[in-house]
Simulated scan of single mutants.
Amino acid sequence: MSFNVAALSMLHMHAGGHTLGFSHCSSFQNRIHSFNATLDVDPTMQLSFAARLRSVCPAHNKVKNAGSPLDSTNFIFDNAYYKLLLQGKSIFSSDQALLTTPKTKALVSKFASSQKAFEKAFVGSMIKMSSLTGGQEIRLDCRVVR
């Protein structure tokens, strides 16, 4: 994965919701309850973080709007998401998977240690994204398909 592709992948997730977002329990329930045949919680998730999520999202959750912010500074566009990811405090397994290859792990580490590097990569990725063509839809509101 090239720097810009990895940055774009992470930024798509991050800018699309992770730095300012919220996730309902149903989106990460599989990581905190009955992860697999032998483990209840995803072993890549930090245990106290998983316990906090389990308290908000019990196994048979009936609260429609229950969930969690995607990072600790959910009203600020910053690199906190990357710092939490390195600590095993990411809500989605797709985010945690960014640490499974040396190249993407290095990018996560770089963005976690430098707000400036994160912002620079974000700008470059958004410029590249704006040049996409070929029938791909760029949405102003991600919940609405035109």
Rank of each mutant, 00 (worst) to 15 (best):
M1I: 03
M1K: 09
F3C: 00
F3T: 05
V5D: 15
A6S: 09
A6Q: 08
A6G: 13
L8V: 13
S9C: 06
H12C: 10
A15T: 11
G16R: 14
G16Q: 13
G17H: 07
H18G: 12
G21P: 04
F22L: 06
S23L: 09
S23R: 10
S23P: 03
H24V: 03
H24S: 03
H24C: 02
F28P: 15
Q29L: 14
Q29A: 13
R31Q: 06
H33R: 13
H33N: 01
S34K: 10
F35K: 15
T38F: 01
D40Y: 06
D42N: 06
T44A: 12
M45W: 03
Q46H: 09
S48K: 10
F49I: 02
A50W: 05
A51I: 07
S55E: 08
S55R: 13
A59M: 05
H60G: 15
H60A: 11
N61S: 07
V63S: 14
K64A: 08
G67M: 04
G67T: 12
S68I: 06
S68T: 13
D71A: 02
S72N: 09
T73E: 12
N74Q: 03
F75G: 09
I76S: 03
I76G: 02
F77M: 12
A80D: 10
Y81D: 07
K83E: 04
L84M: 10
L85A: 14
G88E: 07
K89W: 03
K89F: 04
S90R: 00
I91R: 00
F92S: 03
F92E: 03
S94M: 05
L99E: 09
T100P: 00
T100R: 11
T101A: 11
T101S: 13
P102R: 13
K103A: 11
K103N: 02
T104P: 05
A106H: 11
S109P: 06
F111P: 02
A112L: 06
S113W: 02
S114I: 06
F118L: 08
E119A: 15
K120C: 11
A121I: 11
A121E: 15
A121F: 00
F122Y: 10
F122I: 01
F122S: 09
F122W: 06
V123Q: 08
M126L: 13
I127Y: 03
I127V: 14
I127C: 00
S131R: 15
S131Q: 15
T133R: 14
G135P: 06
Q136T: 06
L140Q: 15
C142K: 05
C142N: 07
C142Y: 14
R143I: 01
V144C: 00
V144H: 14
